[in-house]
Amino acid sequence: MQDQKDIKKTTYKDYAEKRASPSPLIRDTFLAFIFGGALCVAGQGLTALCLAWTGSEKTAGTLASLALIAIASILTGFGVFDKAARYGGAGMLVPITGFSNAMTSPAIDAKSEGWVLGVGAKIFNVAGPVILYGTLSSAVYGLIYYVLKTIIL
């Protein structure tokens, strides 16, 4: 390369992307399986406990979900959750614990700007897109379901 005056953008980008080592897929998948699996086992255990307590399967499921949300939120507050998620990855983030962390972490973070302009304004910073597009897509699916149902019946 005699002329290095301009490092060509596209070729350099390709080069940089090619040489960057990707995230360790097998390790990440394995850890996600272990962490996510352990979480689900814990959730199942909680459900069983709640079932024995309340006798209602529906209530037990709700209580177990609430307990997992609370635990993840408290662990986020103690600064433990993000460390576990760095290893557990999707195993920690995909279950309801991830949503809990996505709500708690911006709330903790924004406290320095006050309850209204900080916590109030920024609490949906991370989970906002999930809530917005989750609600929107459920409305769309509902509509499709309604149309199909009226056509078929």
């Binding site: 080592s21 600064g79 993000d82 998620a85 990855g89 983030l93 972490s105 910073n125």
Partner: peptide, 12 residues
């Protein structure tokens, strides 16, 4: 992201 948000980082 928020400091306590649990995310993973790429090796780079």
């Amino acid at each position: 992201a928020p400091v306590e948000y649990g995310g993973q980082r790429p090796p780079t």
